[in-house]
Design a protein around this nucleic acid. Structure first.
Lengths: 211, 211
DNA sequence: GTCTATACAAAGATAGAC
DNA sequence: GTCTATCTTTGTATAGAC
């Protein structure tokens, strides 16, 4: 383009905006139909650009898929990293459940795409699981062990506890259609969100309270 | 074929056996790559039949997919139907957790395909969810309500409890790759199975115990 | 950067011989 | 029932004009 170095900033912003638009559309479709199940043309249509134009921004479907996954990983580790010892143990866990359920409510597509990746054996994210995620999880497992040692928490296998926290919260994103068929409700409904949060917290915290 | 009516039984059995073989291979691949992500040729290869021959038994990929899903649904409702009042409430739930975790261990592919179907908004199974599943779940929700009324269980929203039971057990099938990366273990490992079962039962049952 | 046209490959499905 | 050959559609990606 005619833009010289001085206008690179403006150009970059425009390019970035379009890339974001495409990634967003891609997230919608990839999370529903997977990599193979999504056609480039569908994404282009949803993002309101031409197929050719999309391929100008992302040279191949795989590259686009990768870009989407990297994007959601950023969001992914936030709640777990936030699980710290700034609060009393049971409150910290209670708070974590809220954060994670908010992720299910606010980023359901990201949650579902993550799930899809796991179902397939994490072909793309395996590296990140073994690196970043593993490290954070180990760290938090230590924290939980300390809490148990201090008698603030019932005896539990830390990993198992983490899996439980993940699963019960993530369920409302991944199985949203089932939840909706059976209850007629979504986490978007504030009352249903509160009821869900309260139920999970009640059972889990109740089960973790030391006797 | 030359078989007359009298040998129809034998022929039927042979046909049924081959159909089973194909459905089994299809389950493996569909559960990993979904409907669109799986090629007929892959299934044929895994089932050790030719592509053309597979298409003789199942006229199209969609028909095969449907056959697979119908097969897994049979397995699906068994544990929930078995949740009854033959036992004291907390023991009944404890037993249900075991059954459901055994399903995750013994039918991981079916669990994952079910998950995949839900992720996509249940395009194929929606009807079954609204019919069969809805009915059984309503029935069990009533049962749980009765238990709560009798003071045998802490106050909880029955649907939320059912979702919790589903999610914590199903997680070990759907997110098996994540579990394996983080712990190095599978439910196939008897010790890990026991540890998992005990952890879930401890937390959930502890949280459900009336105060 | 965006478009039209098109090359190229993959995959589902069918025809017809045996 | 099973095979070989083939048709047809669809989808990814590129070429080249503007």
């Amino acid at each position: 383009m005619k833009a010289d170095e001085k206008s690179a900033g403006r150009r970059s912003r425009a390019v970035a905006a379009k890339r974001t638009l495409i990634v967003n559309a891609a997230l919608t479709l990839f999370s529903q139909f997977g990599l193979q199940g999504t056609r480039i043309e569908q994404i282009a249509e949803l993002a309101d650009v031409s197929k050719t134009n999309l391929l100008y921004y992302f040279p191949s479907k795989e590259k686009l898929y990768l870009a989407v996954l990297q994007d959601i990983l950023t969001v992914w580790l936030i709640p777990l990293r936030a699980l710290d010892n700034g609060l009393p143990p049971l409150e910290a866990i209670s708070h974590y459940i809220r954060l994670k359920l908010e992720v299910s409510r606010d980023y359901p597509r990201a949650s579902r795409l993550f799930c899809l990746e796991m179902l397939q054996g994490a072909p793309v994210l395996r590296g990140e699981l073994e690196g970043d995620l593993h490290q954070v999880v180990d760290e938090k497992a230590q924290l939980i062990r300390r809490w148990i040692g201090e008698g603030a928490l019932a005896e539990t296998e830390p990993y198992q506890l983490i899996f439980m926290l993940w699963s019960v919260t993530q369920h409302y994103a991944d199985f949203a259609s089932q939840v909706e068929v059976l209850t007629g409700k979504t986490l978007q409904d504030p009352e249903f969100f509160s009821e869900t949060l309260a139920s999970i917290q009640q059972v889990i915290i109740g089960g973790l309270r030391p006797r």
